[in-house]
Amino acid sequence: MSILVNKDTRLLVQGITGAQGQFHTAQMLAYGSNIVAGATPGRGGRTLFDRVPVFDEVEEAVARTGANASILFVPAPSAADAILETADAGLKLIICITEGVPALDMVKVLHVLREKDVTLIGPNCPGVISPGEWCRAGIMPLDIHLPGRIGVASRSGTLTYEAVHQLTQAGIGQSTCIGIGGDQLVGTGFVDALALFQEDPETDAVVLIGEIGGVKEQHAAEFVKARGFTKPLFVVVAGQTAPPGKRMGHAGAIITGKAALASSKIAALQEAGATIIPGPAYIGETVKQGLR
């Protein structure tokens, strides 16, 4: 088992005809993901990789192929439009890889999605992978994952790969790894991810990878304190050495006040009973010891 994506996921790729879309579609197919359709406005009618039909509209793609989840490689200026089109077509899982979506676009998108019971992952995220189900709906490297029983949720891309690599090297497999995204406003937060992992009988524990900025880690801590998540939780928060007031790459990674500090987040999660990983170098080691 896993959360969000599995072997029954029928994936639609939006922006499939762009360079990013084509490259990662090839990678996802190589991993074994079941990609049933692509969509790019104005590019419908062709077939890519000898098996993936491309449509102009998401609605048509869903009607013709039975796609039940979508991954977006759409340029930032059109990302909000693409997410809303997908939600309108009735899909309940949307994964937005696109980086640089304007924050006010996301305010509107999230408002609409709240009414529709849609799960949005991202934007500005590496996607979701369930190694035991051979489903990769994302851009993560192909060969670092190991099927297993640990969930991973992270605001970062490459730091997630680092964490997964350390877990795999330590012989600890993963049920599902979710990159929730590096922006201030994202669809699925840590709380939603923890709730899903709590319900998954084949996830035994979760590694949460936070970073400076915002209050997502504090929300996770409150959720754990309220017994919403009761499995073992391991936490690392990146950016302990980041200066205040400077954006550290990610739009959401900026220290604007006390709550945004790595130390505040670590304190909140520690108080909630999480095991604090002393630093990014010790993820594999700490989880291995903690699971003993």
């Binding site: 970062s156 950016g239 790459g249 630093g279 990014p280």
Partner: peptide
């Protein structure tokens, strides 16, 4: 010199460690 913002912050923290 790092690729990715999260890993770049993690690398800074590792230097500190």
């Amino acid at each position: 010199l790092v690729n990715g913002a999260g890993l770049a912050m993690a690398t800074m923290d590792t230097i500190k460690a």
